[in-house]
Design a protein around this nucleic acid. Structure first.
Lengths: 202, 202
DNA sequence: TCAGATACTGAACGCATGTACAGGATACTA
DNA sequence: TAGTATCCTGTACATGCGTTCAGTATCTGA
């Protein structure tokens, strides 16, 4: 499928760096056909954007539905990264495309971010209502902070994998990351007992 | 100066989306001169990369030196965003360029990220030694988490400004953001008293 | 069977790009 | 004042881009 190959290449290199001819070659067709089906490269890009936004909406819906069912599970803190890891194969181009969408994507990116922010606010409110978290002195900023922390994993995936030695979106890496994040969110950064020294790890 | 105009345009639109002719026009010279001075567009890009990396190193050095002097100050938690805000004019293209460097920049980006990660580890160690934070069960991940949270402000600046109504790298926005982050890092997300309901704000 | 829609190709076009180059202007040295 | 290095311009060129288009194959329905 032309659109899937375009999605993969756009995610990998960015839409500007990919030529219509490369997409056509990857899909095993001629460049003319790509334009014939989508009108133009911009049309193709928009089709891919809409496709990914659709997938994402489905994921987000399932995520918030799931958190209603079991708000005590760690993933109900609204972790997009975890939802991505759980619903998508390890080599899916979707995470990278979401990244591009948030960073380059003009209007689609803003739409996506706003939807995420609303979801993050709702998640924080739900946790607060359940007594599992406080909305804090500045709930808007707290919701944004939690969302930004979550997105950072997506945006910095490659760099983090580089320094940590584990892809943070793999099952193992996610577990490791989530455990640490949960520790901080539960008790903050402070040591449990100020007089008792920490064990030195690494 | 040609290099400064290139820096500004690269930061704004990304290196690939800027032409040598645009840079030349912005600097008030001919396209030929740009190539004459820097050999090629790639050479210019490398020169700008090195320039920004140099500026950044100076900032990082001053940051860690400052944290040694007063490790109790909020900014000594190693906040890159705050260092950027403090040392650079509000309309500086440097934050946006750092963003591009981390996201697109191949080798320079990786270098930058590694340097940041090392600094983050050192900051966490220093805070731990001072009894102000724990290295946690997985210090590597904790250092990465703190750094990623910090970088997220840089990477998502525009989107955050959009939903919050304040540029998080402005003085006001930074104050607001830092206060909330410090609250979470100090006490976690949990409400101070489980039975006592939160005040509803917003 | 046959007409018409649809899928598809390959060549061509205009355009913008990075770069090369020949030469003009300017400044510095002797 | 003459020579020379440096700064700088405008033109030109090859390349690769998105897109157009005429034409061919393949499928669909009556």
């Amino acid at each position: 499928m032309i659109r899937d190959e375009a999605l993969r290449l756009f995610a990998e290199r960015g839409a500007d760096a990919v030529t219509v001819r490369q997409i056509a070659a990857a899909a095993g067709v001629s460049a003319g056909l790509v334009v014939h089906h989508f009108g133009s490269k911009a049309g193709l890009l928009e089709a891919v954007d809409q496709h990914v936004l659709g997938l994402f909406d489905a994921m987000l819906a399932e995520l918030s539905a799931g958190s209603g069912a079991d708000p005590l599970a760690p993933e109900s803190s609204g972790s997009l990264a975890e939802a991505v890891t759980r619903h998508l194969p390890a080599d899916s181009p979707i995470p990278a495309y979401l990244r591009r969408l948030l960073l380059d994507g003009g209007d689609a990116g803003r739409q996506l971010f706003r939807r995420l922010f609303t979801a993050s606010q709702a998640a924080l409110d739900a946790l607060s209502a359940a007594g599992l978290a406080a909305r804090g002195p500045d709930p808007l900023v707290r919701a944004a902070f939690l969302m930004a922390n979550d997105l950072a994993v997506l945006l910095l995936r490659d760099h983090l994998a580089d320094v940590l030695g584990t892809d943070p979106l793999s099952t193992d890496g996610m577990t490791r990351w989530t455990a640490e994040v949960l520790t901080v969110y539960t008790a903050g950064l402070l040591p449990p007992h100020p007089t008792e020294p920490e064990e030195g790890i690494q």
